[in-house]
Amino acid sequence: MSTDVRYGGVPALGARALVLAVGAVQVAAFLVADALGRPTLYVAFAVASAACLGALADRGPFGIVAACLSGALLVALVYPLVTLVTVASPESVLAALARPDVRRTLYLSVYAPLLATLLACVLGVPLALLLRRGFPGRPLVESLVDLPLVVPHSVAGLAVLLAFGEGGAFPTLPVLGAVPGLVLALAFVSAPYAVDGAREGFETVDRDAERAARSLGASRFETFRRVTAPLAVRGVLSGAILSWARAVSEYGAVAVVAYNVSVFYPPAGERVQAMFGSVFVVRELDVNFDAAVAVAVCLLAVCVVVFLAVRALTRDAGRWA
């Protein structure tokens, strides 16, 4: 959907053209400031250009102030990530990627969050369905599910260690410095995102559509399979992505439970010691700054690629049934 926006005396541009133009100007300004070695110039330029766009949109003083503040926030969000990418030279990234411990770290940083997300979804999607249907005590259960969001993550790690570690609920399960422990810790901090995303997905499903399906002859299960699930899949998937991304970025809980992890590494065909990405980055900062930056860039790239891929897949997720 493209809407024409008229900016004051500026000729009307299509919305897409406007976005592209603003983006191109920002990239050019960033490159110039970077070449001059004066990053402050770019930050000032970005906020000032936001103010100009606000003024041209002709929404009064509040429009200008809101545009300024929004511009500042966007700069604060995007500028550090762009800087990270520009600081890392391609050579240092390639050099880092050649290191076996870096590759193991990247493997572990994708694999363990995947398992955690799978666990969170297998247990969390049915819960989301129950929460949507409603039951006595639902508010309490909702609070319990969201509890990990407010618990400091190192505390969460300690709690997982005490609950499921040696002498805990699962005596035979390796937790400290092991993949199961790492997955449990990651699932603990990321499950709320999976549950909340799935619940939002289910809540968008029209109850009358489900009733219509039942009256047309579909059993409870068939209605779920043919109506509820296809309509909710977008919410479930976006919850899963958020949950996965949250798990990838986890540091505190991992540092407590699984600083060094013993993991089966397929390329080597054997068990190896590996470190989770965020832990590796923090440790490597003291040892080899370039390697830390390179690993950080790789992690960022993996996250962005997965994020964009799943976003593209969910765009017409409704047709997946």
Binding site: D208, A209, R211, A212, P230, L231, A321
Partner: peptide, 11 residues
């Protein structure tokens, strides 16, 4: 059943 809000399957 026929509903006020149509309740069609949007997918």
């Amino acid at each position: 059943l026929v509903f006020q809000n149509y309740a069609l399957f949007s997918h």
